[in-house]
Design a protein around this nucleic acid. Structure first.
Lengths: 270, 270
DNA sequence: GAAAAACTTGCATGTTTTTGCGGGAAACTA
DNA sequence: TAGTTTCCCGCAAAAACATGCAAGTTTTTC
C-alpha cells in the first residue's frame, strides 16, 4: 500500500517536469517572434519546432494573417506588407551576420542588470531575442529598441528624451547626455559603426558620438556589437577608447585573424 | 476514493504547508505567483497542484480575469495583455470615427507652430495625415506618434524621456512633466478618454493624468479629440478643467444635440 | 446559540474549441 | 507536362468549457 502512495506521489512530482504543452497564444507569440527575427517562417519548420501538425500551424498562420500580423504565403508566412514602422521595413543590411551576433550577445545580459543600449539594427536584433523571463532595466535613446522592449513582460524601460534624429530614430542632445551622466549601469551595449584596434569605437556623426560617449561613461562594462566588415575602419569622432572597451561581439570565430590585435589588448571576444 | 489518494499525495508533496485545504484567496495568490514566475498557468496543472477540481480552477481564473489580473485563454491563463503587438495590431476601435476626427483636426495645425501631443490611436491617425509640406515642432511622449513623425520631412520632434508605460507605449513620470513645464507651446492636442461638459477631460490612470495635465499647462490652446461615445463620461482624475478647454473635435456634426452644453460654454466645435 | 442566508466546491450534463487526419484541389518545381 | 509539395475542407476524437444542482461550509442575523 505504501508503495502505491509513493508511486502516486512520484507521478505527481513528474508533473512538475510536465511535457511542453503550449497554449495557442504561446504558439502565436512564438511564430511572431520567429518571424520578426528571421523575416520568414516555414510551415514545416514551425510544425517540427512546436511539435504540432502542419494543419495546426496553418490554422495559426491563418488566424494571425486575418489579424494582420503576418502575410500568409505558400509554404509559410512573411511579415505584413504594410508595416507601420518604417524602420523595420528597410531591408536590414547583412542581417545574417547581425542575427549571429545577437544570438551570441544574448548571454551578456543577466537578471537584475541595468543595461544601456543605443540604436542600430544589430541592437534591435538582440532585443528581439531577449529571453521572456529576463528581469532587467534598460535605458535607451532608440525608438525601435524601446518599442521592441515594451513587449517584454519583465523589462523596465527608461527612455532618454531629447531631439529626435530622424535617420537614426534615436534622440540626441544635452538632455540625453544629462540623463546618462546621472546613472551607473552594469553594462553598455553599443551598435558599432566602426571599430579600430588602436582608435577604438568611432562615429561619423558628432552628435551621436556625443551621446554614445555618455553611454560609455555611465557603464562599468562596454560591449561593442560589430559586423566584421566594420572592423578596423575609422570615423572622425571617438566614442570609446580601445582601453575602455571590455567585450567585442562579432559574427566571426573568436580565433579569426583580424581579431588578434584585440585579443592581445585583453579584450573579451565572443 | 480517487480523490482521497489525491489529497494524501498532496499532503506528501506539500509537507511544508500544514493545511491541506487552501482558501480561495490563498489559491488566487498561488495562481498569480505561479503566473508571474512562469508566464503561464495551465488549468490542469493548477488543479493537481492545489488539489481542487478543474472547475474550481476555472472559476478562480475567471474571477482573476474579471479583475484584470490575468488573461484567460483556452487551457489556462497568461499575464494580462502584455503582448508586444497589442497596441499596433489590435484592430483600432471605432477607427472610422477616429479617421473622421483626424481629417477634421488636420487644419488646426499650422506652419511654424509648436505642438504638444500625447498618445492614443486618434492622435496617431491625425499624425499619419499631416500634410507633407507642414513645417512644425512637435513635443510628444508617445512612442508610436514619434515613430510616425520621424517619417515626416519637415517636422522637428522632441521626445519627452522618462519611464515607459508599456501598455500605453508612452513615457510618464517627473522627467516628462519637467520637460513640459519648461516650454510654451501654441497648441496641445489630447487623445481623450473621457470628456464631460462640467468636469472637462478626465483620465483613469493617475500617472497618465499627471502627464497630460502638464501638457495642458504648457499650451496656449487645448484641443480634445474625442469620439462621441466618450462624451459626457467621467474618470477619476482631472486632466483639464472645462474652462481650460478651447476646442473639441468629434466625428459628429457640430450641431449635434450632445454638443450643445459645450457650445454654450464657448468651446469651439469642429 | 440556532436558523437563515450566502458562499464554496465537486460532479453530471451538454456544448464549444482544438487538433490531427484523409482525400481531393491547388500550387509550385523541374 | 508530370510529380511533388502544400493547401483546404470536412470529420471525428479528445480536451476544455459553461451551467445547474446538491452537499457541505461559513457568515449573518436575531
Amino acid at each position: 500500500m505504501r508503495n502505491n502512495w509513493r508511486k502516486f506521489a512520484s507521478i505527481l512530482l513528474d508533473s512538475s517536469i510536465k511535457k511542453q504543452v503550449l497554449l495557442k497564444e504561446e504558439r502565436h507569440a512564438y511564430i511572431l517572434q520567429r518571424l520578426s527575427a528571421r523575416q520568414k517562417v516555414l510551415t514545416s519548420s514551425l510544425s517540427e519546432e512546436l511539435s504540432v501538425s502542419e494543419d495546426t500551424i496553418r490554422r495559426d498562420l491563418k488566424e494571425l494573417a486575418d489579424n494582420g500580423q503576418l502575410r500568409k504565403v505558400h509554404g509559410g508566412a512573411l511579415p505584413p506588407s504594410h508595416n507601420p514602422y518604417a524602420y523595420r521595413d528597410r531591408e536590414v543590411y547583412a542581417l545574417e551576420s547581425k542575427i549571429k551576433i545577437a544570438e551570441k550577445a544574448r548571454s551578456l545580459i543577466q537578471d537584475g542588470q541595468v543595461v544601456l543600449m543605443d540604436g542600430g539594427t544589430t541592437n534591435l536584433e538582440l532585443v528581439k531575442r531577449l529571453p521572456q523571463d529576463l528581469h532587467a532595466t534598460f535605458f535607451t535613446n532608440s525608438l525601435p529598441v524601446a518599442v521592441q522592449l515594451s513587449g517584454h513582460p519583465h523589462i523596465e524601460v527608461i527612455f532618454a528624451g531629447g531631439k529626435l534624429l530622424k535617420d537614426a530614430q534615436a534622440t540626441i542632445g544635452l538632455e540625453v547626455v544629462h540623463l546618462f551622466s546621472e546613472i551607473r549601469a552594469d553594462i553598455c551595449i553599443l551598435g558599432t559603426r566602426s571599430l579600430h584596434h588602436e582608435a577604438g569605437i568611432t562615429e561619423i556623426n558628432w552628435e551621436e558620438a556625443q551621446v554614445k560617449r555618455s553611454l560609455v561613461q555611465a557603464a562599468k562594462k562596454v560591449v561593442a556589437l560589430v559586423i566584421s566588415e566594420k572592423i578596423d575602419t575609422l570615423q572622425p569622432y571617438t566614442v570609446c577608447d580601445i582601453k575602455g572597451l571590455h567585450t567585442v561581439v562579432t559574427e566571426l570565430d573568436t580565433t579569426d585573424e583580424i581579431l588578434i590585435p584585440y585579443k592581445k589588448r585583453g579584450i573579451v571576444l565572443i
